[in-house]
């Protein structure tokens, strides 16, 4: 099953930066995943969150409200995810 990776934000520069970093991280890790950029703020609120940007995998937030310092950090977080299907 493919993973669904989403970056949610209001379209501001830092959200876009996180999106670019995430795409790069997923690509470098060779993840079987779609990286999607969502700018509908209601989707962030629907997750019970209020800060942007948000990085969510399969609907679960793993980064909320800030852009990590490096792509390495994003890769680390993506690698630490439990295997698909749990």
């Amino acid at each position: 099953m493919k993973r669904k990776i989403q970056v949610l934000g209001s379209g501001c520069p830092s959200c876009k930066r996180l999106y670019e970093m995430t795409k790069l991280a997923a690509q470098e890790l060779g993840l079987d995943a779609d990286v999607e950029y969502v700018t509908d703020v209601q989707r962030i609120l629907a997750m019970g969150l209020m800060s942007s940007p948000v990085l969510a995998v399969d609907g679960k937030p793993i980064i909320v409200g800030f852009v990590p310092g490096s792509v390495e950090k994003v890769k680390e977080l993506l690698k630490a995810l439990p295997p698909v299907g749990r």
Binding site: G9, S10, C12, P13, S14, C15, V41, Q42, I44, L45, L49, M50, S51, S52, P53, G65
Partner: peptide
């Protein structure tokens, strides 16, 4: 308070 977060913050509070 970065202007990027203004909308989710505002809506989140009021909701």
């Amino acid at each position: 308070f970065c202007t990027c977060s203004a909308i989710p913050l505002f809506l989140g509070f009021v909701e």
